[in-house]
Simulated scan of single mutants.
Amino acid sequence: MNGVLKAMLSEWFSSGFLNLERVTWHSPCEVLQKISEAEAVHPVKNWLDMKRRVGPYRRCYFSSHCSTPGDPLIVLYVALTSDITNNIQAIVKDCPLSETEDKNKIAAAIFYSISLIQQGLQGVELGTFLIKQVVRELQKEFPHLGAFSSLSPIPGFTKWLLGLLSLQAKEHGKNELFTDSESRDIAEATGGPAHETLRAYLSSNEWVKSAKLVCALQAPLMRLCAWYLYGEKHRGYALNPVANFHLQNGAVLWRINWMADSSPRGLTSSCGLMVNYRYFLEETSTNSVAYLGSKTIKASEQVLGLVAQFQKHSKL
């Protein structure tokens, strides 16, 4: 029955029945209220925060069904920037409200949040179609726009890392995550054995209060994150659900960003790291076929370099 219902919903909510609608500060209050309450990636704090997200250099779009226009099913937030952003605070906090848009300053479109409003439609491919629609809409508005990328969270990374640290702690004296110099730096910063004390620090987010520990962790966490996104698989596909979504769409695993989300939520879920999945429009179809058919992940030199470092230093 689950399979039949999913197939029926997929037909009822296929692309031919969906409309693209843009949200502005002048949209109906009920719409603004609904999408602000449903924001799952970067929670909206207040009405001023919401006004920023639909103001200058920002776009917000949603899909609605033709039978219920104006009723959001899934929402996508976009930042229009001069380059591919590597920090989420620069998007959700540093957006001017009064500035008039200068098209000459816009060179990149950053998809920084996509949230499903109608949770009963989990599993229906709404997000993929919404991104394609938004890209076409932005190209009409900004014909010169050349770069399309996400700035995505990495849910599950901290949990995965804590599991590895627990395993290493049980195997006394065994070190397969850090180099000898990294272990010494971490032990010096935490005051105890790297695996045991680090697990406690990461669990409570206390580590960001120590500049010394932040510095010591940058190199190992970057390569561990690269491996988590590129090497950890579920049935041959990326284990991380956000990575799997963008890779299915044909995006490139392009750049991992250190301390890109310093909010408590970002530190808890992914140790503050975020990732850019970049959409090279002329390559998305080829990349999608390669991923879905051959389970091949297209990644940048930065990511592949970090993966090579992980393989060199780790024995997992």
Results as ranks from 00 to 15, higher is better:
196 E>H: 05
142 F>N: 03
294 S>F: 10
154 I>W: 01
62 F>M: 04
299 A>L: 05
292 L>G: 00
290 A>C: 11
291 Y>P: 04
297 I>V: 15
207 W>K: 04
106 I>G: 02
114 I>W: 00
55 G>H: 06
293 G>E: 11
196 E>L: 06
290 A>K: 11
35 I>L: 10
164 L>P: 00
121 L>R: 02
142 F>W: 13
261 D>Q: 03
54 V>T: 08
4 V>D: 06
6 K>G: 04
254 W>P: 00
276 N>E: 08
20 L>S: 06
239 L>W: 08
163 G>V: 11
67 S>Q: 12
144 H>G: 06
172 H>Y: 11
56 P>Y: 05
17 F>H: 14
312 K>D: 13
191 G>R: 05
91 I>K: 01
34 K>T: 15
117 I>W: 06
275 V>C: 10
38 A>M: 09
51 K>M: 09
1 M>N: 14
166 S>I: 11
46 N>Y: 06
283 E>G: 00
120 G>Y: 07
264 P>L: 07
288 S>H: 04
315 K>S: 12
137 E>Y: 03
283 E>H: 10
18 L>C: 07
288 S>C: 12
282 E>T: 10
87 N>E: 10
246 H>P: 02
174 K>E: 10
278 R>T: 13
269 S>F: 00
131 I>A: 01
218 Q>L: 06
286 T>Q: 08
7 A>Y: 12
296 T>L: 08
74 I>V: 15
53 R>I: 03
33 Q>N: 13
69 P>G: 08
284 T>P: 01
227 W>M: 04
115 S>I: 05
244 N>V: 03
7 A>K: 14
249 N>I: 02
98 S>D: 10
118 Q>Y: 02
167 L>R: 12
125 E>S: 12
109 A>H: 01
172 H>E: 15
240 N>H: 03
34 K>W: 03
214 V>W: 02
89 Q>F: 09
3 G>S: 14
159 K>G: 03
253 L>S: 05
36 S>M: 06
127 G>N: 03
306 L>E: 13
207 W>E: 08
287 N>Y: 12
168 Q>A: 10
270 S>P: 05
284 T>Y: 00
84 I>T: 12
75 V>A: 05
53 R>E: 07
125 E>Q: 07
283 E>A: 09
82 S>W: 09
198 L>M: 07
312 K>P: 01
119 Q>P: 00
151 L>S: 08
83 D>K: 01
24 T>Q: 13
96 P>W: 09
150 S>K: 09
117 I>L: 10
42 H>E: 12
256 I>P: 01
91 I>V: 15
230 Y>G: 00
14 S>A: 14
136 R>T: 12
297 I>E: 02
306 L>W: 08
42 H>L: 04
298 K>A: 15
95 C>L: 02
109 A>G: 02
270 S>W: 03
81 T>P: 01
212 K>F: 05
245 F>A: 07
296 T>F: 07
142 F>H: 11
253 L>W: 06
218 Q>V: 06
57 Y>S: 07
193 P>T: 15
44 V>H: 04
298 K>C: 13
33 Q>K: 13
289 V>G: 00
105 K>F: 07
158 T>K: 15
121 L>M: 07
268 T>C: 00
183 S>A: 15
18 L>V: 10
311 Q>E: 15
12 W>K: 13
169 A>K: 14
